[in-house]
Design a protein around this nucleic acid. Structure first.
Lengths: 288, 288
DNA sequence: ACGACCAATACCCGTGCGGTATCGCCGCTC
DNA sequence: GAGCGGCGATACCGCACGGGTATTGGTCGT
C-alpha cells in the first residue's frame, strides 16, 4: 500500500451545502442561495449527518441552530473549501504561464512600504508584473487562502497569519485619530481605556468575514477613506498604526496610544509556494 | 450577497482520483488502488482537465507524466484533501464528547520532554485523558493536518511547521552516533562534511511521505530502534539531536557536530483549535 | 381555531458515474 | 517486420443518486 489513501471522503458539494445552511440557519434561504430547491437540500444535510454519524443542526419547526459539532464543521468546512478553491485557482494559474504575481493588501495601509516594495522589486532582475489588489480589512487573508492572491501584506495582530509563511517587515506603535480641536487632541498620550471610556466619539464597526457589520453603536465603515472622513466630521475616532499619519488631512489630530498593541506589517504567502516571483518579492521586502 | 459563495468547486472525488493517478503515474494501478475500473477513471481525469481548462498529464501510450500544472495540483490537492479529512475527523471528535486529546510524537524523540509534559499536564486541574500516538518521522505532521491528532511534538527543521500554530519548547545541538570503537569515535567534534565524506558508514534512508524509501546507498530504516541497532552493528551512522543520548547502549559512541543545524522541539496544533485541553497542554509545555 | 411558516416526506425523472467489451497505439521481441 | 503485449481511450449500457414538484406535519402567532 502506497501513501495516504483518502477513502470515501465527504464531497465538496455536501460541505458547500452545509456551509450555506449553517450561515443562513434557514433551509429555504440557503437553498435559494445555492440555486436549488429546499427538499433536496434538506435531504443532503440529513445524508451528511448520517454519513458522519453526527447531528449538525438542531431543528425546531421555528428555528435552526448549530450543534457543537456543527459549529466545528462550519469552521473546518470553510477552510477545507478554501483549500479546494485554492487548488483549483493555483492549478489554473500554473497553466497559463504568463507569469505575474497577485499581491493583496489593505487599501490605505502600509502605503509607503508598499510603494517602496513595488519599486524595489521592479528593479530586480527577472521581475514579473505585479498586480496589486487593494481591498478591505480582513480580505487579503481570505484572498491568500483561496488562491486569488499569491502574496499579501498583513498586519498582526489584526490579521491572523495562521497557515501562512511570513516574514516580519516593520513594527510600529498605534495612535488614536481624533477630529482637530477635540478636547483630548492635545494630550501627549492616551491609554486604551481612556479612548474606550470617552463616549462622544464611538469606534467604527468594520465588516466581518460574512460581509455583515456587527451590531452596536458607531458608524459602519468599509475603508480608511470613509473612516478618515467620519473622523473629520467629528462622528468617530479610531486607533490606527502611526504610519497612517501620511494620509491625514489637516482637520485630523493624532495622539499616541502607548499601551495599544504594536502593529507588525508582515509579508505572507501560502506554504509550499514554489513561485520564484513570490520568493523574489519576499526577499526584496525583507531587505527594504 | 452574503459571504464567500463557493460555487461549482471541484469535487473531492475528482481530487482523490487525480492524486491516485499522479502518484502512480499509471491509470491501471491507480484504478486498482481506488477499487474501480480503469475506463471511468480515465474519463474522470479527462473531465477534470476539461473543467479546469488545463492539461494535467502528458500521456504517451508508454508512460504518464505530470505537467507543470499537474504537479501544482498534486500538491494543492493533497493539502485540500487533508483539510477535508480533518473537517470530517474533527467534527466526529466534537460530537462524541468524551473529551480526550490525541498527541502525536515521533517514537524515541524528545522522550524525556514528553514524559515530563504528560506528568505536568496530568497534574493540571481539568486535565483530560491524553492518548499518545508514537509514530515514524514525518508522520506527526500529517496526523495533525488530517485531524487524526489534536496536538503534536515536531522538530524543526526536520518537520515543516507551516500551517500550524506552534510554541518553541527546547533547542539542542546535534551529534553523530557511531559504533563504539569507530576510528572517528574519539574525536572531540566532527563537521557535517566529515560525516558525509566517510564512506564506510552510510547514512540510513528514511521513508518518504508516500511510504516508499528513496533510492541510494544506506540501509532502509523506519524508527530509532532499528537505527540504533544498525549503528551498533557497524552498518550505519546518523546525525541526531543530542537528547537521544539517553537511549544509547554502551556499544554506541557519540561525537558532537557543531555545524549541524540545531534542532528545536516545538509543540504544534491546528490553527483555530478551540479545545481547552489543547490550550492547557500547550501552556503546560511552555512552562516546563 | 385558523393561517403562516418551515422543515420533512413522498414520488418522479434525468443525469452521470461506474462497469464490461473493445479499439488503437506504441514498443519490444524473435 | 510481423506479432504480441501493455496501456490508455472509446463505445455502450444500467443503475443509483441528485434534483425537482407536490404535499404533509408540526409549531408558532393572532
Amino acid at each position: 500500500m502506497v501513501s495516504a489513501g483518502y477513502d470515501a471522503l465527504v464531497e465538496t458539494r455536501e460541505l458547500r451545502y452545509f456551509v450555506a445552511v449553517a450561515e443562513e440557519l434557514h433551509f429555504g434561504r440557503a437553498a435559494q442561495r445555492l440555486a436549488m430547491a429546499q427538499p433536496p437540500l434538506s435531504r443532503a444535510i440529513q445524508q451528511l449527518e448520517r454519513r458522519l454519524g453526527v447531528v449538525l443542526l438542531h431543528r425546531t419547526a421555528r428555528a435552526v441552530a448549530l450543534t457543537e459539532a456543527g459549529s466545528v464543521l462550519l469552521r473546518e468546512a470553510r477552510t477545507a473549501l478554501d483549500a479546494v478553491e485554492a487548488a483549483e485557482r493555483r492549478t489554473r494559474r500554473a497553466a497559463d504561464d504568463q507569469p505575474g504575481v497577485v499581491l493583496a493588501a489593505k487599501a490605505g495601509a502600509s502605503r509607503e512600504l508598499l510603494s517602496k516594495l513595488l519599486d524595489a522589486y521592479a528593479a530586480e532582475p527577472g521581475a514579473v508584473a505585479v498586480e496589486v489588489m487593494l481591498c478591505g480589512p480582513g480580505e487579503p487573508e481570505s484572498l491568500l487562502r483561496t488562491g486569488r492572491a499569491d502574496v499579501a501584506l498583513l498586519h498582526r495582530p489584526y490579521d491572523t497569519t495562521a497557515g501562512f509563511d511570513t516574514e516580519d517587515l516593520h513594527t510600529e506603535q498605534q495612535v488614536v485619530v481624533l477630529p482637530k480641536g477635540h478636547p483630548l487632541a492635545d494630550r501627549a498620550h492616551l491609554s486604551l481605556v481612556e479612548v474606550n471610556a470617552q463616549t462622544d466619539l464611538p469606534l467604527p464597526r468594520w465588516p466581518g468575514r460574512d460581509g455583515g457589520h456587527p451590531d452596536g453603536p458607531g458608524p459602519q465603515v468599509r475603508d480608511h477613506t470613509q473612516l478618515l472622513q467620519l473622523i473629520a466630521l467629528g462622528l468617530a475616532c479610531a486607533v490606527v498604526p502611526e504610519s497612517l499619519r501620511d494620509q491625514l488631512r489637516d482637520d485630523h489630530a493624532i495622539v499616541p496610544v502607548p499601551d495599544a498593541p504594536a502593529v507588525t506589517t508582515v509579508i505572507a504567502w501560502p506554504p509550499h509556494s514554489r513561485s520564484k516571483a513570490v520568493a523574489d518579492l519576499v526577499r526584496t521586502a525583507t531587505r527594504l
